[in-house]
């Protein structure tokens, strides 16, 4: 498979995550907010091998959420007066300019959760939730990788972060969790 268009905040790191699909040149276009910390991403973009559509991070998240909710477009103040606004409709509401951004409707969503029950209800853990719920929502088919599949009924229904209606396949796999920036503080001397 090649010529893939990927909407993801960044492109993983070199050789890991989405970085693997960059290495094999299977990605034609990225829709991202951040290129840093991935040398191959920046190299392919600067050499013109890879198309890159910069999206402000919140606009990207909202485009996914909107797509998942059947909303084809929305107006936002983010990016007004910058290159992000070029070619986009500008509309004034109550004296303030907003630009039109489109919802994202993806063929496939690939996300990561902490736990799934057997019906696909998902629970995420701490800041690892981030883009996963809106990304899951905007795909026609959603594949989720989880750390644990638990029996249906064992998750508190009030504590489900993403209902299983958005989830079509569950993969439980041994996977590596990396820390990219290990920052610590010293314990106080007793």
């Amino acid at each position: 498979m090649k010529d893939i268009t990927v909407a993801s905040n960044n492109c993983g790191v070199d050789g890991f995550g989405l970085g693997k699909l960059l290495d094999t040149k299977q990605i034609r276009k990225m829709m991202s907010s951040y290129v840093g910390e991935n040398a191959e991403f920046m190299r392919q973009y600067l050499s013109g091998e890879l198309e890159l559509e910069f999206n402000p991070q919140g606009t990207l998240a909202e485009r996914m959420r909107a797509g998942g909710c059947g909303i084809p477009g929305f107006y936002t103040r983010t990016g007004v007066g910058t290159v992000i606004a070029e070619g986009k409709e500008v509309k004034t509401f109550d004296g303030q300019d907003y630009i039109l951004e489109r919802g994202i409707f993806a063929d496939l969503s690939i996300v990561k959760a902490w736990k799934a029950d057997e019906t696909g209800n998902l629970v995420f853990r701490k800041t690892a939730r981030n883009f996963n719920p809106p990304a899951a929502m905007c795909g026609k088919v959603c594949v989720v990788e989880v750390e644990e599949i638990v029996p249906t009924g064992s998750l508190d229904p009030d504590h489900i972060h993403l209902p299983g209606i958005y989830v079509h396949r569950i993969i439980q796999g041994a996977h590596e969790k990396r820390i990219e920036q290990r920052t610590v503080r010293k314990r106080e001397e007793a």
């Binding site: 919140g58 909202e62 995420f124 701490k126 800041t127 981030n130 809106p134």
Partner: peptide, 24 residues
């Protein structure tokens, strides 16, 4: 904790008042 990082990908901690939510 690899699941507890800030926007700069640095490891951080939570407080009693902490709330987590998605990017949207």
């Amino acid at each position: 904790d690899p699941d507890l990082i800030n926007a700069g990908k640095q490891t951080i901690t939570e407080l009693k008042r902490t709330a987590y939510f998605d990017s949207a």
